[in-house]
Protein backbone atom coordinates (compact mmCIF):
# COMPACT_ATOMS: atom_id res chain seq x y z
CA UNK A 1 0.00 0.00 0.00
CA UNK A 2 1.32 3.44 -0.91
CA UNK A 3 2.43 5.70 1.88
CA UNK A 4 0.01 8.55 1.33
CA UNK A 5 -1.04 11.27 3.70
CA UNK A 6 -3.64 9.61 5.91
CA UNK A 7 -6.94 11.47 6.13
CA UNK A 8 -8.05 12.45 9.63
CA UNK A 9 -9.73 9.44 11.20
CA UNK A 10 -12.10 9.03 14.05
CA UNK A 11 -10.80 7.43 17.18
CA UNK A 12 -11.25 3.70 17.32
CA UNK A 13 -11.16 1.18 20.12
CA UNK A 14 -8.76 -1.72 20.59
CA UNK A 15 -11.18 -4.28 19.16
CA UNK A 16 -11.86 -2.25 16.02
CA UNK A 17 -8.13 -1.81 15.58
CA UNK A 18 -7.64 -5.60 15.63
CA UNK A 19 -10.49 -5.99 13.20
CA UNK A 20 -8.97 -3.46 10.83
CA UNK A 21 -5.65 -5.32 10.91
CA UNK A 22 -7.37 -8.59 10.08
CA UNK A 23 -9.47 -7.19 7.24
CA UNK A 24 -6.57 -5.26 5.74
CA UNK A 25 -4.24 -8.26 5.82
CA UNK A 26 -6.88 -10.66 4.48
CA UNK A 27 -7.36 -8.20 1.64
CA UNK A 28 -3.62 -7.86 1.04
CA UNK A 29 -2.73 -11.56 1.12
CA UNK A 30 -4.94 -14.09 -0.67
CA UNK A 31 -3.02 -16.96 0.97
CA UNK A 32 -4.20 -15.94 4.43
CA UNK A 33 -6.99 -18.06 5.91
CA UNK A 34 -8.64 -17.94 9.33
CA UNK A 35 -9.58 -20.81 11.63
CA UNK A 36 -11.28 -20.77 14.98
CA UNK A 37 -14.36 -21.55 16.98
CA UNK A 38 -17.35 -19.42 15.95
CA UNK A 39 -15.25 -16.97 13.94
CA UNK A 40 -17.45 -17.15 10.84
CA UNK A 41 -21.22 -17.17 11.22
CA UNK A 42 -21.06 -15.59 14.67
CA UNK A 43 -18.09 -13.33 13.90
CA UNK A 44 -16.17 -14.45 16.96
CA UNK A 45 -17.19 -14.58 20.61
CA UNK A 46 -16.17 -10.92 20.98
CA UNK A 47 -16.87 -9.86 17.39
CA UNK A 48 -13.25 -9.43 16.32
CA UNK A 49 -13.94 -11.30 13.06
CA UNK A 50 -17.44 -9.91 12.52
CA UNK A 51 -18.09 -9.74 8.77
CA UNK A 52 -14.95 -11.66 7.79
CA UNK A 53 -16.86 -14.66 6.46
CA UNK A 54 -19.21 -12.48 4.40
CA UNK A 55 -16.32 -10.64 2.86
CA UNK A 56 -13.85 -13.45 2.23
CA UNK A 57 -16.02 -16.55 2.00
CA UNK A 58 -15.88 -20.12 3.22
CA UNK A 59 -12.55 -20.90 1.57
CA UNK A 60 -10.84 -18.27 3.73
CA UNK A 61 -12.77 -18.38 7.00
CA UNK A 62 -13.35 -21.67 8.81
CA UNK A 63 -15.75 -22.20 11.68
CA UNK A 64 -13.97 -25.02 13.42
CA UNK A 65 -15.23 -27.77 15.72
CA UNK A 66 -14.31 -27.38 19.39
CA UNK A 67 -10.92 -28.94 18.77
CA UNK A 68 -7.99 -26.68 19.59
CA UNK A 69 -5.45 -29.36 18.72
CA UNK A 70 -7.02 -29.90 15.29
CA UNK A 71 -7.29 -26.16 14.73
CA UNK A 72 -3.59 -25.57 15.33
CA UNK A 73 -2.56 -28.84 13.68
CA UNK A 74 -4.57 -28.20 10.53
CA UNK A 75 -3.16 -24.68 10.42
CA UNK A 76 0.28 -26.24 10.68
CA UNK A 77 -0.45 -28.40 7.62
CA UNK A 78 -1.80 -25.41 5.72
CA UNK A 79 1.42 -23.50 6.48
CA UNK A 80 3.48 -26.52 5.43
CA UNK A 81 1.71 -26.35 2.10
CA UNK A 82 2.05 -22.66 1.30
CA UNK A 83 -0.78 -20.99 3.21
CA UNK A 84 -0.71 -18.48 6.05
CA UNK A 85 -3.14 -18.96 8.88
CA UNK A 86 -4.78 -16.85 11.53
CA UNK A 87 -5.82 -19.08 14.41
CA UNK A 88 -8.24 -17.61 16.91
CA UNK A 89 -8.38 -19.08 20.37
CA UNK A 90 -11.82 -18.23 21.71
CA UNK A 91 -10.18 -17.54 25.06
CA UNK A 92 -6.43 -17.80 25.48
CA UNK A 93 -7.15 -20.09 28.45
CA UNK A 94 -8.31 -22.80 26.01
CA UNK A 95 -4.93 -22.83 24.31
CA UNK A 96 -3.82 -25.57 26.69
CA UNK A 97 -6.02 -27.94 24.67
CA UNK A 98 -3.85 -27.22 21.64
CA UNK A 99 -0.58 -26.98 23.53
CA UNK A 100 1.22 -29.94 21.96
CA UNK A 101 0.40 -28.82 18.44
CA UNK A 102 1.83 -25.38 19.21
CA UNK A 103 5.01 -26.23 21.08
CA UNK A 104 5.97 -29.55 19.52
CA UNK A 105 4.62 -29.32 15.99
CA UNK A 106 4.50 -25.67 15.03
CA UNK A 107 7.19 -23.98 17.13
CA UNK A 108 9.85 -26.54 16.20
CA UNK A 109 9.09 -26.87 12.50
CA UNK A 110 11.67 -24.43 11.20
CA UNK A 111 14.31 -25.76 13.57
CA UNK A 112 13.87 -29.44 12.93
CA UNK A 113 13.72 -28.99 9.15
CA UNK A 114 16.92 -26.90 9.17
CA UNK A 115 15.00 -23.99 7.70
CA UNK A 116 13.14 -25.91 4.97
CA UNK A 117 9.73 -25.11 6.40
CA UNK A 118 8.58 -21.94 8.13
CA UNK A 119 5.24 -21.53 9.88
CA UNK A 120 3.59 -18.20 9.07
CA UNK A 121 0.87 -18.67 11.65
CA UNK A 122 -0.73 -16.12 13.95
CA UNK A 123 -2.33 -17.46 17.10
CA UNK A 124 -4.38 -14.73 18.69
CA UNK A 125 -7.01 -14.56 21.39
CA UNK A 126 -8.53 -12.68 24.28
CA UNK A 127 -6.43 -12.90 27.41
CA UNK A 128 -6.01 -11.47 30.86
CA UNK A 129 -7.94 -10.86 34.05
CA UNK A 130 -9.58 -7.91 35.83
CA UNK A 131 -12.99 -8.74 34.36
CA UNK A 132 -14.29 -11.34 36.79
CA UNK A 133 -13.78 -14.08 34.23
CA UNK A 134 -12.67 -16.56 36.89
CA UNK A 135 -10.20 -19.39 36.53
CA UNK A 136 -10.68 -20.23 32.86
CA UNK A 137 -11.40 -16.85 31.28
CA UNK A 138 -8.69 -14.76 32.94
CA UNK A 139 -5.37 -16.37 32.25
CA UNK A 140 -2.09 -14.97 31.09
CA UNK A 141 -0.17 -18.08 30.06
CA UNK A 142 2.44 -16.41 27.85
CA UNK A 143 5.32 -17.82 29.91
CA UNK A 144 4.49 -21.36 28.75
CA UNK A 145 5.22 -20.25 25.23
CA UNK A 146 8.14 -17.96 26.01
CA UNK A 147 9.72 -21.16 27.32
CA UNK A 148 9.13 -22.90 23.96
CA UNK A 149 11.74 -21.76 21.44
CA UNK A 150 10.42 -20.84 18.01
CA UNK A 151 7.43 -18.72 19.00
CA UNK A 152 7.26 -14.95 18.92
CA UNK A 153 4.96 -13.36 21.49
CA UNK A 154 3.39 -9.91 21.52
CA UNK A 155 0.92 -8.26 23.89
CA UNK A 156 -0.36 -4.85 22.78
CA UNK A 157 -1.89 -2.33 25.19
CA UNK A 158 -3.24 0.35 22.81
CA UNK A 159 -5.41 0.35 19.69
CA UNK A 160 -2.49 1.48 17.52
CA UNK A 161 -0.22 -1.23 18.90
CA UNK A 162 -2.99 -3.82 18.59
CA UNK A 163 -3.38 -3.05 14.91
CA UNK A 164 0.28 -2.52 14.18
CA UNK A 165 1.61 -5.59 15.95
CA UNK A 166 -1.11 -7.83 14.55
CA UNK A 167 -0.28 -6.65 11.04
CA UNK A 168 3.40 -7.38 11.68
CA UNK A 169 2.45 -10.79 13.04
CA UNK A 170 0.59 -11.62 9.81
CA UNK A 171 3.66 -10.71 7.77
CA UNK A 172 6.14 -12.62 9.94
CA UNK A 173 7.36 -16.00 8.63
CA UNK A 174 7.32 -17.39 12.18
CA UNK A 175 4.46 -18.42 14.43
CA UNK A 176 3.46 -15.34 16.41
CA UNK A 177 1.21 -15.40 19.45
CA UNK A 178 -0.86 -12.30 20.02
CA UNK A 179 -2.17 -11.84 23.54
CA UNK A 180 -5.13 -9.50 23.17
CA UNK A 181 -6.36 -7.76 26.29
CA UNK A 182 -10.08 -8.39 26.34
CA UNK A 183 -10.61 -5.85 29.11
CA UNK A 184 -9.21 -3.25 26.70
CA UNK A 185 -11.31 -4.36 23.70
CA UNK A 186 -14.00 -1.73 24.25
CA UNK A 187 -12.39 0.59 26.78
CA UNK A 188 -13.42 4.11 25.79
CA UNK A 189 -10.67 6.18 27.37
CA UNK A 190 -7.91 4.53 25.33
CA UNK A 191 -9.55 5.01 21.92
CA UNK A 192 -7.23 6.75 19.48
CA UNK A 193 -6.71 7.57 15.83
CA UNK A 194 -4.99 4.68 14.09
CA UNK A 195 -3.29 4.69 10.68
CA UNK A 196 -4.38 2.63 7.69
CA UNK A 197 -2.36 0.13 5.65
CA UNK A 198 1.42 -0.08 5.90
CA UNK A 199 1.55 3.15 7.94
CA UNK A 200 -0.11 1.28 10.79
CA UNK A 201 2.69 -1.31 11.09
CA UNK A 202 4.37 -1.60 14.49
CA UNK A 203 7.50 -3.75 14.36
CA UNK A 204 7.74 -6.80 16.62
CA UNK A 205 10.54 -6.54 19.18
CA UNK A 206 10.40 -2.84 19.95
CA UNK A 207 9.41 -1.53 23.37
CA UNK A 208 7.73 1.82 23.85
CA UNK A 209 8.36 4.31 26.63
CA UNK A 210 4.88 5.32 27.72
CA UNK A 211 5.93 7.86 30.29
CA UNK A 212 9.34 9.36 30.92
CA UNK A 213 10.85 9.61 34.39
CA UNK A 214 14.13 9.61 36.27
CA UNK A 215 13.71 7.70 39.54
CA UNK A 216 12.39 4.25 38.75
CA UNK A 217 11.66 2.19 35.64
CA UNK A 218 8.44 0.23 35.65
CA UNK A 219 8.52 -2.41 32.92
CA UNK A 220 5.30 -4.13 31.98
CA UNK A 221 2.85 -5.00 29.17
CA UNK A 222 -0.85 -5.46 28.53
CA UNK A 223 -3.40 -4.47 31.18
CA UNK A 224 -0.72 -3.46 33.66
CA UNK A 225 0.55 -0.64 31.47
CA UNK A 226 -2.47 1.35 32.71
CA UNK A 227 -1.92 0.31 36.32
CA UNK A 228 1.72 1.34 36.00
CA UNK A 229 0.76 4.72 34.53
CA UNK A 230 -1.65 5.31 37.42
CA UNK A 231 1.04 4.23 39.87
CA UNK A 232 3.40 6.74 38.24
CA UNK A 233 0.84 9.45 39.05
CA UNK A 234 0.82 8.26 42.68
CA UNK A 235 4.62 8.28 42.76
CA UNK A 236 4.67 11.81 41.39
CA UNK A 237 2.57 12.97 44.33
CA UNK A 238 5.20 11.34 46.58
CA UNK A 239 7.91 13.26 44.75
CA UNK A 240 9.27 10.44 42.55
CA UNK A 241 9.22 10.36 38.79
CA UNK A 242 8.63 6.96 37.24
CA UNK A 243 9.39 5.88 33.69
CA UNK A 244 6.92 3.36 32.27
CA UNK A 245 8.19 0.99 29.58
CA UNK A 246 5.62 -1.07 27.67
CA UNK A 247 7.65 -3.92 26.18
CA UNK A 248 4.83 -4.82 23.73
CA UNK A 249 6.87 -7.83 22.50
CA UNK A 250 8.06 -10.53 24.89
CA UNK A 251 9.84 -12.62 22.26
CA UNK A 252 11.97 -11.03 20.99
CA UNK A 253 12.49 -8.70 23.95
CA UNK A 254 13.80 -5.18 23.44
CA UNK A 255 16.37 -5.23 26.22
CA UNK A 256 18.11 -2.13 24.86
CA UNK A 257 15.19 0.15 25.65
CA UNK A 258 14.97 -1.22 29.20
CA UNK A 259 18.71 -0.79 29.73
CA UNK A 260 18.57 2.75 28.39
CA UNK A 261 15.88 3.55 30.89
CA UNK A 262 17.77 1.88 33.73
CA UNK A 263 20.86 3.89 32.90
CA UNK A 264 18.72 6.89 33.80
CA UNK A 265 16.70 5.62 36.77
CA UNK A 266 18.89 2.84 38.26
CA UNK A 267 15.80 1.22 39.74
CA UNK A 268 13.70 -1.56 38.24
CA UNK A 269 10.20 -2.84 38.91
CA UNK A 270 8.70 -5.40 36.56
CA UNK A 271 5.01 -6.20 36.50
CA UNK A 272 3.25 -9.19 34.97
CA UNK A 273 -0.25 -10.58 35.36
CA UNK A 274 0.86 -14.21 35.39
CA UNK A 275 1.81 -16.09 38.56
CA UNK A 276 5.11 -15.17 40.16
CA UNK A 277 7.01 -18.42 39.75
CA UNK A 278 8.59 -18.57 36.29
CA UNK A 279 6.50 -15.64 35.07
CA UNK A 280 7.95 -13.44 32.35
CA UNK A 281 8.77 -10.70 34.89
CA UNK A 282 11.26 -13.13 36.42
CA UNK A 283 12.95 -13.53 33.03
CA UNK A 284 13.28 -9.78 32.59
CA UNK A 285 14.69 -9.45 36.08
CA UNK A 286 17.18 -12.26 35.50
CA UNK A 287 18.45 -10.80 32.25
CA UNK A 288 18.88 -7.33 33.67
CA UNK A 289 20.54 -8.67 36.83
CA UNK A 290 23.01 -10.56 34.64
CA UNK A 291 23.66 -7.93 32.05
CA UNK A 292 23.05 -4.60 33.79
CA UNK A 293 23.95 -5.24 37.42
CA UNK A 294 26.09 -2.11 37.56
CA UNK A 295 23.12 0.02 36.57
CA UNK A 296 21.09 -1.04 39.60
CA UNK A 297 21.01 0.95 42.85
CA UNK A 298 18.26 -1.16 44.38
CA UNK A 299 17.27 -4.83 44.16
CA UNK A 300 15.13 -5.36 41.05
CA UNK A 301 11.57 -6.07 42.14
CA UNK A 302 8.50 -7.82 40.77
CA UNK A 303 4.78 -7.27 41.05
CA UNK A 304 2.92 -10.35 39.84
CA UNK A 305 -0.17 -12.39 40.47
CA UNK A 306 0.14 -14.54 43.58
CA UNK A 307 0.98 -18.15 42.81
CA UNK A 308 -2.73 -18.92 42.59
CA UNK A 309 -5.33 -19.34 39.87
CA UNK A 310 -7.45 -16.25 39.12
CA UNK A 311 -10.58 -16.40 41.30
CA UNK A 312 -14.00 -15.11 40.28
CA UNK A 313 -15.54 -12.55 42.65
CA UNK A 314 -14.01 -9.09 42.77
CA UNK A 315 -12.40 -9.04 46.23
CA UNK A 316 -10.70 -12.36 45.55
CA UNK A 317 -9.56 -11.38 42.07
CA UNK A 318 -8.19 -8.06 43.32
CA UNK A 319 -6.37 -9.85 46.10
CA UNK A 320 -4.32 -12.01 43.75
CA UNK A 321 -3.70 -9.75 40.72
CA UNK A 322 -1.24 -6.85 40.41
CA UNK A 323 -2.90 -3.51 41.07
CA UNK A 324 -2.14 0.22 41.05
CA UNK A 325 -1.64 0.06 44.82
CA UNK A 326 0.72 -2.92 44.69
CA UNK A 327 2.79 -1.32 41.93
CA UNK A 328 2.89 2.01 43.75
CA UNK A 329 3.99 0.39 46.97
CA UNK A 330 6.70 -1.70 45.32
CA UNK A 331 8.01 1.20 43.24
CA UNK A 332 8.18 3.36 46.36
CA UNK A 333 10.22 0.68 48.09
CA UNK A 334 12.58 0.67 45.12
CA UNK A 335 12.83 4.47 45.15
CA UNK A 336 13.47 4.60 48.90
CA UNK A 337 15.94 1.72 49.04
Amino acid sequence: MAKTEAPARTKINYLTALKEAIFEEFERDADLVGMGEDIGLLGGAFGVTDGLLDKFGRDRVFDMPISEAAIVGTACGLCLNGKKVMVEMQFIDFISCGFDQIVNMTATYHYRTAGEVSMPMVIRGPAGGYGGGALYHSQMNEAWFANSPGLKIVCPSTPADAKGLLKSAFRDPNPVMVYEMKELYRRRDIEEEVAVGDDAIVPIGKARVRREGDDVTIVTYGNNVYHALAAADNLASEGFSAEVVDIRSLVPLDEATIKESLAKTNRLVVVNEAPRTCGFAGEILARLAEEAFELLDAPPMRVTRLDTPVPWVKPLETFVLPSVDKITETALRACRY
Partner: peptide
Amino acid sequence: TSMLAGTIPAAAGVVLAD
Protein backbone atom coordinates in the same frame (compact mmCIF):
# COMPACT_ATOMS: atom_id res chain seq x y z
CA THR B 1 7.47 -36.24 15.41
CA SER B 2 7.28 -38.37 18.55
CA MET B 3 3.75 -37.24 19.38
CA LEU B 4 1.71 -40.12 18.01
CA ALA B 5 -1.30 -39.15 15.89
CA GLY B 6 0.08 -35.62 16.15
CA THR B 7 0.64 -35.27 12.42
CA ILE B 8 -2.87 -36.28 11.34
CA PRO B 9 -4.19 -32.70 11.56
CA ALA B 10 -1.18 -31.49 9.55
CA ALA B 11 -1.99 -34.11 6.91
CA ALA B 12 -5.55 -32.76 6.85
CA GLY B 13 -4.10 -29.27 6.48
CA VAL B 14 -1.86 -30.02 3.50
CA VAL B 15 -4.66 -31.55 1.48
CA LEU B 16 -6.98 -28.73 2.47
CA ALA B 17 -4.38 -26.28 1.09
CA ASP B 18 -4.24 -28.29 -2.13
